[in-house]
Design a protein around this nucleic acid. Structure first.
Lengths: 180, 180
DNA sequence: CTCCCATATGCAACATTGTGCATATACAGT
DNA sequence: ACTGTATATGCACAATGTTGCATATGGGAG
């Protein structure tokens, strides 16, 4: 349901090939949505079957042939309809908490180790996010930013806020588990 | 893959009926994992087919008959194996950010409204969480808490931290979208 | 007496998502 | 020659999640 709208969103900006969309998932969009290339190509096929996107085959001599997809009028309508329909809340699945529910004196060391590793990864992630922020979104740059870039910055801000909260929580969790 | 371990976790504590497990999903566990009753009953069927859980049929005269499930030795082994295997990170799908990527001068009002509504819901949620914390987890209670309760408190703490971060971010997002 | 709610279980169909496998060209480095 | 990386696409199967339907009892409210 949702991947469809992510792809439509990307196509609504520019006509693109599947390969380019995959790269977007690997970089910018990847911070809040992950999809494999298989998923992307399949979704593009479904979209064009449903008449929400169309494609042109472009032959290339130096590289493999490619298909450039563009969103159709029907695709835009579908996307707009989705935008106006409120999202239903919920869906916070947290496997780490499920693991912790199993914590006891026998396995607390294993779980503590996983918590520590998660903590380290989270800390690195936060550093990376903050690094991106200082490098690409300094105060003087922010004003002149086009809309899409502002939203991407907002995505980064969300990453930072959430990662900070996660890190603080992991500290609490480590203490709790160690003292079981 | 994952629902299986949530159900095994719940069964590893107590033998329970499907109905009881469903109620647990609607209350305590619901804060970090949602599942419908259909999913739960199906999963219980799959678990017992796989020999990871067994059940006893109990006839009742006043209420419908019920099946009480208990985890098997194989089920415990499977659960322990999962605990020791590190989780793979990632999977932060955020449909709200996808919507915001579509923001422009035409639809910014609709999106701003959804952001405001989300903000209100988030604020209520945070109040509820904090309320639960003061009511059930006052400082003097925390010491004597059994393990499971401590983990559930940890789940609540995560809810609080994350909801605070979400709320702070939503404030940023509202400002950004209004100024587009 | 009827309607709704809580208790208690489940199938079947469908939609969506994720994983493993497969193919093909060109260029750069070892 | 071989290996890796970038470009470019996709099928098939498995797992997961959603929706609609189906059944059955007992108690309380109106």
């Amino acid at each position: 349901m949702a991947l469809k709208y992510v792809v439509l969103t990307l196509l609504s900006r520019d006509a693109q090939t599947g390969y380019e969309i995959v790269k977007t998932f690997d970089t910018a969009v990847g911070y809040f949505w992950r999809a494999s290339h298989q998923q992307v190509y399949r979704e593009l096929g479904l979209l064009s079957d449903a008449g929400l996107a169309s494609f042109k085959l472009q032959t290339q001599s130096d590289k493999p042939d490619k298909k450039t997809y563009r969103i159709t009028a029907a695709g835009r309508r579908e996307l707009m309809a989705w935008l106006e329909k409120p999202l239903k809340p919920g869906g916070n699945k947290d496997a780490l908490l499920v693991k912790l529910l199993n914590a006891d004196s026998k396995n607390k060391d294993i779980l503590a180790r996983e918590l520590e590793e998660t903590r380290q990864r989270t800390e690195l992630m936060l550093k990376e996010y903050r690094n991106i922020e200082t490098l690409h979104y300094s105060a003087d740059v922010l004003d002149g930013l086009p809309t899409v870039e502002r939203i991407l910055y907002l995505a980064l801000r969300k990453g930072i806020r959430m990662t900070e909260a996660q890190l603080a929580w992991l500290d609490e969790a480590v203490v709790t588990v160690k003292n079981l």
